[in-house]
Amino acid sequence: MLNYPFPEKPAAGDVIEVAEGVLWLRMPLPMALDHINLYLIEDHDGWWVVDTGMDVGATRDLWQQIFDKHLRGKPVKAVVATHWHPDHVGLAGWLCDVWRAPCYMTQGEYLTGLVYTRAAKEHFGWSNEQHQVRSGRGQAGIDSARSSMGGVGRITHAMPTSYRRLEEGTRLTIKGRRWRVVVGSGHSPEHACLFCESLNVLLSGDQVIPRITSNISVSGLEPEGNPLKAWLTSLERFLEVLPDDALVLPAHNTPFTGLHHRLRYLIEHHEDHLIALEQACMTQPKSAVELLPVLFQRELNEQHIGLAVGECVAHLNYLYQRGQLERTVDAEGCYRYRSIDDTLPMRLRKHRHRAESADPIRV
């Protein structure tokens, strides 16, 4: 089970100290997931900001309240962006300019962020169109994806013009404590988490979240990508290199303990989806859009369907590249998937037995 040691959440413009010298704050998001958790780490001569919020609404004003009330007369000396998504990097350029502070990111995240924040509708090319058709969305998907091209740039301040590279094992010394970079992948290309052994604290970004599952998605930028393979590999490695009793400070929901429990739940969650997709493709070939009800038992609106299709394609690419699904192209140019692994009936029996006999891993 997971434990949540902080029943109260920080109010807008305020902070809660969750470990010595580590402050938790929140910024609003204009979507169903209505918040992001951000963190400040105190150094001798300033503060390290971990993630930034989007460049929308009152976020800059709320940051100014944080500066005025909680920095104890010390400047922001560094900005760390765990990954390129706009709720994490949206104000990195602004914060770095205001404080003349360096930005720390992995190379994969920094370069991907530059691509997405500078994209415009005219960059939507034939390969993007083909990806929508291949997924089964057709012209409606093409129109929706084209209209959203450039949306990231509208909620992200211009990216910092330089960065300091984080890599697996990079160590940052902050107020005499060592924070080790642990890199995950799948949700984004090269997601940086920070672990402090002396505090037993993990800043997990979107790599580990307690109550929701991070989106693992294939887009038209890399239509044959296999992010789910990278995601599952990352989760398995985190089980090996990070302690179960760490205090996890995620980007969404609330801080928690029970890291290994959550990692095992996430692995099983995706394994359940994979076998369900194989089963759904046993009788006749199906498209990604036709398979959405296998993964999502709720009605999807236009805001969510693009991410949902991307997640479904991520699972299908994983199975196809493992040789468990056959993929053909129909007359409309849409990919159709059929199960071809003759071990599937045996695996389904084992899966049902495990589901019936084992206690579920609960969040």
Rank of each mutant, 00 (worst) to 15 (best):
R298F: 13
E197H: 11
S162V: 00
A358K: 04
R154T: 10
A92S: 08
R137K: 10
W94Q: 00
H315P: 01
F124W: 06
V80M: 10
V22R: 01
H260F: 15
H252P: 00
A288E: 03
I174H: 04
Y320Q: 09
M282G: 01
P210L: 09
W47G: 01
A119Q: 09
I209E: 13
G21E: 08
P345M: 05
Y4D: 04
T257E: 13
A92H: 00
Q132Y: 02
V201K: 04
M149N: 04
S287D: 02
I216E: 11
L242W: 15
G306E: 14
I216G: 11
G138K: 02
L2V: 04
D330Y: 04
L91M: 11
G150S: 07
E167D: 14
T173I: 11
P189A: 10
T112H: 09
G186Y: 15
I36D: 01
W47H: 05
T161N: 01
V201I: 11
P243R: 14
L242V: 13
E332P: 08
M27Y: 14
T52R: 03
E109A: 02
N317S: 03
V80G: 07
G153F: 04
L111C: 03
D34S: 07
D245Y: 03
P7H: 07
H191W: 02
L316C: 01
R352P: 00
R336W: 03
R146Q: 15
W84F: 13
A308P: 15
R72D: 13
P345T: 05
G333V: 00
A192K: 05
A78Y: 10
A358L: 10
D272W: 08
S219L: 07
H353E: 10
